[in-house]
């Protein structure tokens, strides 16, 4: 994609993940949003959170979707960056830069867009060969709907709860 094409997207949604079980949550959310075909956004899947840095400068608003550890599988979180709670939160990446590290680096380099929203789904299965858990499958649909509502400014009907 060249710069001219990229410039038309002011909102970017990045799904972070790997193919392994619930770690693919971010990718599935992006896929779900792509199938709806109605969002004026750039949709991106990424494996390493450091790739977030490629999409910061060209966006006015960045939505990031990822799996996270937690006690209640399927629970959806919405955080507005910057937020202290995120620093202590455990993300699923095994590489040196997790999502929060990549956002700090983006901030340090003045690359962050005007607004950054981080969405997390609490998940349980991360081993190679695992399939998506049922709780994640349901949460993916809910999260896609929530993001659509937020971007298209549709009032929340209360059916998909977030923290």
């Amino acid at each position: 994609m060249n710069d001219e094409e990229t410039n038309q997207y002011r909102i970017t949604i990045v799904g972070i993940g790997t193919p392994h079980g619930d770690d693919s949550i971010g990718w599935h959310v992006v896929q779900e949003l792509g199938q709806s075909g109605i969002l004026p956004c750039q949709l991106v899947v990424a494996r390493n959170p450091i790739e977030l840095l490629d999409h910061m400068e060209m966006s006015e608003k960045l939505h990031i979707c990822d799996a996270c550890w937690g006690e209640q599988p399927g629970r959806i979180h919405r955080w507005q960056w910057p937020q202290e709670e995120l620093t202590g939160f455990r993300w699923t990446g095994t590489h040196d830069f997790d999502v929060v590290g990549a956002l700090h680096l983006g901030q340090q380099l003045s690359l962050l867009p005007r607004e950054t929203v981080l969405w997390g789904i609490e998940a349980i299965r991360f081993e190679a060969g695992d399939s998506l858990s049922e709780s994640s499958r349901q949460a993916i649909r809910s999260l896609a709907k929530l993001i659509q509502q937020e971007i298209l400014v549709i009032p929340d009907d209360g059916s998909d709860s977030i923290l």
Binding site: F97, G101, H104, L105, Q108, S110
Partner: peptide, 10 residues
Amino acid sequence: SAMELAKQFP
């Protein structure tokens, strides 16, 4: 860390 490097050599 890379964060410190970014501070020194943005």
